[in-house]
């Protein structure tokens, strides 16, 4: 039994919803609090691991992650490489942005492609999205991490994205096959992260775990972080299939009667062209996107075809080593 630990008492406060909440002392705004936590995590990894790497997907979350890494080591440069797993089915605009932006901030970029699978004809059209993703993303990612070999890999995943993510630790332990075991996660208390691993094992680190999609957009807005233009609405050629808008950049096979058409739209999350559905939108600035999101009642990954392959499919992919 603890001795009298907390002597502080609070009577029921009379809620006063018209004035700002009481500050008994200086407090950070929620974005600054999240930023401080993420920077702490990034520094902790660099201090305790030998060969960290940051997974760079070129999306908005990656952009925020890169900015946090810049802040963590300022005035020094980011002390680890950025790794992009290129399926070759990414949008041309993404690749262009990737090369320009990483050069601009002086980051080291490593690009990895499962060339063997591509040479053997792997594509979402030939294999179906699940197998394609397994070869060009999950397999390629595991091979890329082994090629380092990297013992810690930052990812931009957030817990609010998907139900299985909500239970994942900030330091997510992976065995020597890169697999996640949701039943056997290390307890994670306070801000004390356990970095100990054996040879061949690794940790996936998610500094944005506690951020929501809205936080990410607000941070991009307030920090003026550059993002890929695909996030902004403009007329783009797509195939309309039910509720989905499928970009035509890599010539997806069309169903009878389907024809590409120009639709005012934007991407809500970025993946490969075939698996990333666009959404109809007029939002061509960050504040407009935030406005749109705020009234939007659909969750972000819904437009990713891959997550709907079967019930609980994200959890299955993660067990196999997917980010």
């Amino acid at each position: 039994m603890p001795e009298k630990q907390i002597v502080q008492t609070e009577t029921t406060p009379k809620p006063d919803l018209d004035s700002p909440p009481p500050f008994s002392r200086e407090a950070l705004t929620h974005l600054r609090a999240l930023e401080a936590e993420s920077i702490h995590i990034i520094r902790e990894v660099v201090a305790e691991f030998e060969r960290p790497v940051m997974l760079y997907s070129i999306g908005k979350d990656s952009s925020v992650l890169v900015r946090l890494a810049q802040k963590a080591f300022y005035p020094g440069k980011i002390p680890f490489p950025l790794l992009h797993v290129d399926t070759t089915y990414k949008f041309g605009e993404m690749i262009e942005f990737r090369d320009r932006y990483t050069a601009e901030i002086g980051a080291k970029l490593v690009v990895y492609t499962n060339q063997k699978a591509i040479d053997e004809g792997a594509s979402p059209f030939a294999l179906g999205t699940q197998k394609c993703c397994g070869l060009l993303k999950t397999r390629a990612l595991l091979d890329a991490l082994a090629s380092g070999p990297y013992d810690a890999a930052f990812g931009g995943a957030r817990r609010d994205e998907e139900k299985s993510r909500a239970k994942e630790r900030i330091y997510s332990f992976r065995d020597s096959y890169g697999q996640w075991d949701p039943k056997n996660q290390r307890p994670e208390l306070w801000n004390l992260y356990n970095s100990r691993i054996d040879k061949g094992e690794s940790i996936r680190v998610f500094p944005l775990s506690n951020w929501t999609e809205l936080d990410v957009w607000q941070y991009i807005h307030f920090e003026k972080i550059p993002i890929v233009p695909l996030y902004f609405a403009k007329p783009r050629p797509v195939v309309v299939r039910g509720d989905h808008l499928i970009p035509v950049e890599h010539n997806p096979p069309l169903l009878p009667g389907e024809k590409p058409q120009m639709v005012m739209c934007r991407m809500r999350s970025l993946g490969c062209t075939y698996c990333t559905g666009a959404i109809r939108s007029e939002a061509d600035t960050v504040p407009k996107i935030i406005h749109e999101l705020f009234f939007m009642r659909r969750s972000e990954r819904e437009n990713r075809v891959i997550d709907h392959d079967q019930e609980g499919s994200m959890e299955i992919k993660k067990r196999e080593g997917y980010f």
């Binding site: 907390i6 609070e10 406060p13 809620p15 006063d16 909440p21 009481p22 008994s24 002392r25 200086e26």
Partner: peptide, 8 residues
């Protein structure tokens, strides 16, 4: 929404 933050 109103409980003091950081008061402890």
């Amino acid at each position: 929404e109103t409980v003091p933050i950081g008061s402890s």
